[in-house]
């Protein structure tokens, strides 16, 4: 065990200049500082000590795991896994979704009529005309009897007023 003399001899050998200096540092503390320090620290530790000592090990482990989850690397990993899980679920689910046309076939004619009656005013007349044209073309291309068509033309002509025809000409 080194004595104070050993330490002083070593310094004297290394630096006679330093060994001759008075080992006074010039640092001071406020009056009665150390008494107050004891009281202050004791007050701090006794007011907060109970929960620190009484935390069970399993709670500490749980809180460690929770803290680890929120570390950036772990959080990023978990977020990626969650994102992949959601994307996978969505991907597989999209294959089994019901066909909207099949859904429409379940609606009765009465319900459709009622819906159209209720909402007919909301549709743009131009849009309706387009739909009408499209359906007319497809209807003409289908197997409609010529007699029925002729009868339809005749009825349409009869419905148009002669005066209107003159205006059109």
């Amino acid at each position: 065990m080194e004595s104070r003399k050993d330490i002083q001899d070593e310094l004297n050998e290394l630096s006679p200049l330093l060994s001759k200096l008075e080992k006074r540092e010039g640092f001071q503390v406020p009056p009665r500082y150390f008494e107050k320090l004891t009281q202050e620290v004791l007050h701090n530790v006794t007011t907060e000590s109970t929960p620190i000592v009484s935390v069970p090990q399993w709670q500490q482990n749980l809180s460690n795991i929770w803290a680890a989850i929120w570390q950036p690397k772990m959080a990023m990993g978990l977020a990626t896994i969650a994102l992949l899980a959601v994307a996978t679920t969505f991907f597989f689910d999209s294959g089994t979704t019901t066909d909207p046309l099949a859904e429409l076939s379940n609606i009765s004619d009465e319900e459709l009529d009622f819906f159209i009656e209720e909402n007919i005013d909301e549709y743009d007349m131009a849009l309706l005309a387009d739909i009408d044209d499209a359906t007319s073309e497809s209807a003409l291309s289908s197997d409609i009897d010529d007699d029925i068509l002729n009868e339809l033309y005749q009825q349409t002509i009869d419905d148009i007023d002669v005066l209107e025809l003159e205006e059109l000409l």
Partner: peptide, 18 residues
């Protein structure tokens, strides 16, 4: 500095207690 030393020594003693 004293003020800094005071803060550090208090933290040290609290850590020791814990």
């Amino acid at each position: 500095e004293h003020d800094d030393a005071n803060d550090v020594v208090q933290n040290t003693l609290i850590k020791i207690y814990r």
